[in-house]
């Protein structure tokens, strides 16, 4: 990781840890000046960007987070059976505007099923979901078209909201850039790498500016930088007042979310 990359990750870390924008800009500028004038490897000078960001937060504190707004998604008593097997039992989740909720649990505990029920793609055996505002959904896999270009995906999704073609393309490219991806104009989706394809998938779900964003393990195939960009993007969307639900198995990220729903069955030590 070179100095620029280190500074980028450091800035993203400060943002995710809710350091005030002006203070974060000042700290990053100071670190950049120090590296430029003193030279040296930022890892040797400052250490890991995450650790240095944590130290900065301890010193200067964080900006007060925006207060959660009205309830955007309320799922209550969700029960789902496949044959005799009950995959979800009485699951409940409330997410407000300006919150990120993580849905966690062991493999096969119904995380994706829960999300698909929240999106209205499948029906539960019991329970209800109330959504306030527009829904966006990013599936774990699929959801893109092999023989279409990224721009054509943006036009296709944008047309659903009656967006004209050029604004849809511009919005798609801008959203892709937030994930560190310059959406190529002439590369078919089937030729994109797994991680880039997932970025396309994610970009499509945010294009229509949803009020409630449902993401099913959206980081599959991401490298470290893309992963940081993803969380940076999610925190930015949260601060804009979106309600976000992320299915994740990366527990180390849970300190960045506001609500956790653990779907691991009780006899395996799960909690809700």
């Amino acid at each position: 990781m070179n100095a620029d990359e280190w500074l980028r990750v450091f800035a993203a870390e400060l943002h995710q840890r809710r350091v005030a924008v002006d203070a974060a800009r000042h700290v990053v500028a100071e670190a950049a000046t120090h590296l430029r004038e003193g030279g040296g490897d930022p890892w040797l000078v400052f250490g890991a960007p995450q650790a240095y960001a944590a130290a900065i937060v301890e010193t200067i504190g964080t900006a007060p987070g925006p207060r959660p707004g009205p309830v955007r998604l309320h799922a209550r008593g969700i029960t789902k059976r496949y044959g005799r097997r009950t995959v979800l039992r009485d699951a409940t989740l409330t997410v407000r505007a300006g919150q990120i909720a993580a849905v966690v649990g062991a493999n096969g505990c119904g995380k994706s099923t829960f999300l698909r029920i929240c999106a209205g793609l499948i029906s539960p055996d019991a329970g209800e979901v109330t959504v306030s505002g527009r829904l966006g959904y990013c599936p774990q896999q699929g959801g893109t078209v092999d023989f279409l270009l990224p721009d054509e995906h943006f036009v296709l999704v944008g047309a659903g909201q009656r967006m004209a073609r050029d604004p849809a393309r511009r919005a798609g490219r801008a959203a892709a850039r937030q994930l560190g991806w310059e959406a190529e104009r002439d590369v078919l989706a089937r030729h994109l790498s797994g991680g880039t394809r997932q970025k396309l998938n994610l970009t499509m779900s945010t294009l229509a500016e949803p009020d409630v964003l449902l993401l099913d393990e959206p980081y599959q195939g991401f490298d470290q930088g893309s992963y940081v960009n993803l969380w940076d993007q999610l925190v930015r969307l949260r601060d804009e007042g979106k309600a976000i639900v992320v299915v994740t198995h990366l527990l180390n990220q849970l300190d960045r979310v506001d609500v956790v729903l653990d779907l691991t069955p009780a006899h395996q030590g799960g909690r809700s």
């Binding site: 966006g136 959904y137 599936p139 078209v145 999704v157």
Partner: peptide, 15 residues
């Protein structure tokens, strides 16, 4: 068949 995965998300996108 190929559009089966895409259509639900297009439905959510306003189609």
């Amino acid at each position: 068949s190929a559009a089966r995965e895409l259509e639900p998300r297009l439905r959510l996108a306003g189609y």
